[in-house]
Design a protein around this nucleic acid. Structure first.
Lengths: 354, 354
DNA sequence: GATGGGTATTGAATCGATTCAATGCCTCGA
DNA sequence: TCGAGGCATTGAATCGATTCAATACCCATC
């Protein structure tokens, strides 16, 4: 019976060299004579040899894939983040393993466990568990990770996020400028930091305009989905003194709202103006295109991946390393990068009142 | 200096047993005495031991992750497929590596190469390369794979797809029933089998109604995106004898079309009726909800993953295997599963003409 | 002809878990 | 008391590539 797979030793034998030389011709090509290398590559081609990553990884201790754990691929915002990250990683010759935690801390923990067993090169994570507890195994195993879409001040970890206070301010400033004086905030789960930050920004704008905080009327929702947006519309229409404008914590909510308002015969933006958040592609694809706070999602993914790779290539952080080849100066510094959002004005908010 | 990571031998020493016993307590728990096992697990906990997948994989020859290669995560349809597949794989204790080929055969080939090096358990692939050439390495390495969203008659490979002829027929039958006699087909790249199949179904319906093939007016597009849908709207409105109904090859096209028609003041469905394809979530979330041909995307992903796992667990297909423990009867049979689409009628097509 | 220096190649040790034949121990029945 | 048989455990071989100190070889120089 034939041997199952062709290994490096088969190539070596067939090419009349040692396994070391075959390995070298892959990993340090210029340390082997051109003609030898050519001969080896020919044999590789002929035998259809592919090297075993598991063996390679066992020896070198590090794999060639990075993991990306997002909350939910159903939200195009996260897809964009994933795309940015994937491109950056591919450019560095690494594969990306995209997984979804479905916002569940336990799923998150399970995946983190899988990643540590795989000894992935690093992890990009949008945390579902606010305590950060589920990331503990990564710290223990010294697997570098970068927190995405959440600000972490820790100084023990890198993070890339977008300034949500600014985003909330931009949205509400715009609505105030349009003359609105009663503004609803369809927010989402109140325990999310982002929801709170955007509210803070909204209230900042209101205070700056010399208006009372009651100007903002918050309508929390359990989920940030299209369906939740529809539900919120009903609540909005039931309000005694109906707001003339709505700031939604993401575009899915805004789309659901806009649809429900249309169905109820309420004109957007004439009767109710809407501002969304994220600026997903679909926001600009509906009949009344949505004004939205644009987050640089792809950029966030790209940056996060680059920071991760930088950390993975840099020496670790226990002091025992100095005196080695790099004079300590290139030791990795954890950074918390905060990107700036941007308001994209479209039809859904283009109507002056008052 | 402390040893980098804690390995199975550290656990063994600390627990006063041999490495074999530690390994056993993970892989065949009931072959080891309960109290021994408890002692070992306690040590594992205390030392924070995580087993090395690379070592495990090197020995056993197979990994615990399956790869999923889709064309484009920006289309929610593929996201749904991915979700179905991921859930099924997770249920079997496997991780999923989701990657996007961006419709590029060369990217596809690169990823396939990565997968073979990783010796993944199996690959689910929505092929970008119509020749199937880029999948060759999988065959050589005997890595099981299932083709998703494409019908493959090959009998050398499993596939899961949806009947596009039926889908096209359903869409156009519906429009004919509504009284339409001039129907546009905004299609997409003509070289895609799916585009052709849907056209075939559309023409079937027209023939069955005793109408001439000219009833269908095809408007091909280079891409199947929202932007392409907008462009197609302009072409549609420029037609001499403007169709009263449009069948779009996917929902992105349909959404772009609907938006552009709204902007041009053309009423949907009164002046132009629209039927989309895929029934993504956003199709039902716009002001005039979209009638669409629903594909069981999650089901397709789920089924594909299950078929893949079945194949991965079954013996290979070279005849040399018989006489072994399984009497040959459980040998894997390649199947081409074809699922049925379903028409979901919404407002965008609900208007009788003629 | 000897010496030195550079380049190309070798081969054995190593990474960490799995596997399985061999061993040890214990109990129960004859 | 002895032996059979079952259960728990051992430990050495193994997977396949990487790595590096050692070696071999060649050419230039003195």
């Amino acid at each position: 019976m034939a041997k199952k797979t062709v290994g490096i030793s088969d190539v070596a034998r067939e090419a009349g060299v040692s396994v070391g030389t075959v390995s070298n011709s892959f990993n340090r090509p210029d340390s082997v004579a051109p003609e030898t290398r050519a001969r080896i590559l020919a044999v590789v081609e002929r035998l259809g040899y592919v090297r075993s990553e598991s063996a390679r990884q066992l020896r070198t201790g590090t794999s060639r894939i990075v993991a990306l754990l997002v909350l939910d691929l159903a939200n195009p915002f996260f897809v964009e983040v994933a795309n940015g990250a994937e491109r950056a990683a591919r450019a560095a010759g690494l594969g990306v393993m995209v997984c979804t935690s479905a916002q569940s801390p336990s799923e998150e923990a399970e995946y983190i466990g899988l990643f540590t067993e795989q000894q992935v090169r690093g992890v990009l994570v949008i945390p579902a568990d606010p305590t950060g507890h589920s990331l503990e195994p990564l710290r223990r195993q010294r697997i570098p990770y970068v927190v995405v879409d959440r600000l972490v001040q820790d100084a023990e970890v890198c993070s890339v996020s977008v300034d949500d206070v600014v985003g909330g301010r931009l949205a509400v400033e715009h609505l105030l400028t349009q003359g609105h004086r009663r503004i609803a905030y369809i927010s989402g789960p109140p325990h999310l930091q982002q929801i709170r930050d955007r509210r803070t920004g909204a209230l900042d704008a209101i205070a700056a305009a010399g208006l009372p905080p009651e100007t903002l009327h918050e309508l929390p929702t359990a989920h940030m989905t299209i369906a939740a947006g529809r539900d919120a519309a009903a609540r909005l229409l039931g309000l005694a003194d109906r707001p003339t404008a709505v700031f939604c914590a993401n575009d899915l909510l805004a789309l659901g709202l806009e649809q429900a308002l249309y169905a109820a015969g309420v004109k957007v933006p004439e009767e109710v103006a809407i501002v969304g958040y994220d600026d997903i592609e679909f926001a600009s694809a509906v009949a009344v295109p949505l004004t939205s706070v644009r987050q640089p999602a792809a950029e966030m993914g790209r940056l996060a991946a680059q920071m991760l790779l930088a950390e993975a290539d840099a020496p670790g952080e226990d002091g025992s390393e100095n005196g080695s080849q790099n004079g300590g100066k290139s030791r990795h510094e954890h950074r918390a990068v905060v990107l700036q959002p941007e308001l994209v004005v479209r039809t859904s908010s283009l109507h002056r009142v008052g």
